[in-house]
């Protein structure tokens, strides 16, 4: 039996939360469908020949990066990132909540640092002015990295500073990863 922080189901009860959840799911679903479609076109084209699929590798690279970063930002809001819950399951609820806050705040700081370095990389790319897919500037693809890390930092910070009721602990068989 493991205890787990209640996920963000609470925020989905209000209209704003529902809208954000729908937008997130829609974005991830669209990115996933697009990357599958492009990969399918590329693989069919390369196996059977005749189709000009030279653009497909760049498109898959960009879509995969966006899928990873948008998915990671969504996972942060749903507490879906891989975590080890050894210590928190050994302590009483009060101590476990403190440890959880500490872990979320640590994750927020790390995400913020990654967002900062991501921003620097984007600014560097802006100076280089490289393009992919004929006319798409590379910085426009890379910009998702600092943006997603910033969203992750905000979400982890919100979890870390949230009032106690948000940290309802539930007993859930086999929910831990």
């Amino acid at each position: 039996m493991t205890r787990d922080v209640h996920d963000s189901a609470g925020q989905a009860n209000d209209p704003t939360g529902k809208l954000i959840a729908a937008l997130e799911s829609g974005s991830v679903a669209c990115l996933f469908a697009m990357v599958v479609l492009v990969a399918l076109v590329k693989q069919v084209g390369s196996h059977f020949g005749g189709l000009p699929v030279g653009w497909a590798d760049d498109a898959i690279s960009a879509l995969l990066l966006w899928l990873v970063m948008v998915g990671s930002a969504v996972a942060a809001g749903r507490l879906g990132h891989y975590r080890v819950r050894v210590i928190e399951s050994l302590f009483p609820t009060g101590v476990a909540v403190v440890l959880m806050r500490l872990s979320f705040l640590t994750a927020a700081v790390v995400s913020l640092v990654l967002a900062w370095y991501g921003l620097r990389a984007v600014l560097l790319e802006l100076e280089f002015g490289r393009v992919v897919l004929d006319r798409v500037p590379l910085w426009a693809i890379y910009v998702i990295v600092p943006a997603a890390f910033a969203v992750m930092a905000a979400r982890f910070l919100a979890f870390g500073l949230a009032p106690s009721p948000v940290f309802r602990l539930r007993e859930d068989k086999g929910s831990g990863r």
């Binding site: 975590r83 080890v84 994750a107």
Partner: peptide, 28 residues
């Protein structure tokens, strides 16, 4: 204590970069 794995790996890498006197931005 439950810090997400990605954050722990990032901390390990950043520490390694600083010890090796490399630019941490290379992590990105």
């Amino acid at each position: 204590i439950g810090v997400p794995v990605f954050a722990v790996v990032a901390m390990a890498v950043l520490t390694g970069f600083l010890q090796a006197e490399l630019e941490p931005a290379l992590l990105i």
